[in-house]
Amino acid sequence: MPQEHNHDHCHDHAHDHDHDHDAADLGPQDSLYSHIDRANVVALNTSKLGEVVIKPWDKRLDEAESLESDADDQMIIRVPFTGSVRLRAVLLKTGPGDQTPRKVQIYANQEHMDFDDIEQLTPTQEFEIAQGREVGEYAVKTAKFSNVSSLTLFFPESQGSDTIQIYYLGFLGHWTERKNNPVITVYEAQANLADHTKIQGTEGNFYTPQT
């Protein structure tokens, strides 16, 4: 067996080596990678799809794929989840050097936010980003991210370059299956439709009763 050979060859270091190898492949137990709706990750002001930076744990240091900002040194990445998330931390690998964003502003449940909305919205939390080639872990205030269906990350500027670059984006936390919205049941019920049509903004969702 290969494992027995490793123990014979590595002696006292074999246990540490095997443990580190396993951890690198599997990642943290509370990684949310498998619960990200990767096909619908959106990146604004880039020439690539946002999902290229949503990588498995063992690819977190891989620099073959990245997102680089296009027109200037700003970028927005919107990440939807397949359920309800209680977020613990955001993981980022950026750079190199002055292509590192100066900071990241994180918004919970702002699915359609774009650059025009930034000035009107207050981030749920923000972090300064240090230069470095490793993956940075940014622990959030969990109480503010306890029922998250999507996260929007805004990178407002670089640390000196004309563009910014993101290699890896990951999340740690707890995922639960999202329950169906009970409002759907009300819409489908054969109730008094005349009452429903009085709700502002929903007239187009219902049939007008025959008179």
Rank of each mutant, 00 (worst) to 15 (best):
41 V>D: 01
124 T>G: 15
23 A>L: 06
185 T>M: 09
6 N>W: 01
187 Y>T: 11
65 E>A: 07
82 T>V: 00
103 K>M: 05
179 K>T: 06
134 E>S: 14
83 G>W: 07
166 I>H: 03
158 S>C: 00
35 H>Q: 08
147 N>F: 07
176 T>P: 01
141 K>E: 09
117 D>C: 14
140 V>K: 05
164 I>K: 04
193 L>N: 09
21 H>S: 14
74 Q>I: 04
20 D>Q: 12
52 V>N: 03
86 R>M: 07
153 L>C: 10
45 N>H: 06
19 H>N: 03
204 G>C: 05
86 R>H: 09
38 R>T: 03
150 S>W: 04
206 F>Y: 12
98 D>M: 08
7 H>A: 12
154 F>E: 08
89 A>K: 05
187 Y>P: 00
137 E>R: 03
108 A>W: 01
130 A>F: 00
135 V>W: 09
99 Q>K: 14
185 T>L: 08
12 D>N: 10
166 I>M: 10
176 T>F: 09
31 S>C: 02
107 Y>M: 12
198 K>Q: 15
59 K>A: 15
80 P>K: 08
49 L>F: 13
120 Q>L: 11
26 L>H: 14
15 H>F: 12
207 Y>D: 08
183 V>Q: 05
140 V>F: 03
178 R>Y: 00
85 V>R: 02
135 V>M: 11
131 Q>K: 02
41 V>T: 02
174 H>A: 08
11 H>D: 04
63 E>V: 11
175 W>G: 05
25 D>I: 11
5 H>E: 12
74 Q>C: 06
148 V>Q: 05
15 H>Y: 06
156 P>Q: 05
195 D>T: 15
152 T>D: 04
32 L>C: 13
10 C>P: 01
195 D>M: 14
128 E>M: 01
123 P>Q: 00
14 A>H: 06
196 H>M: 15
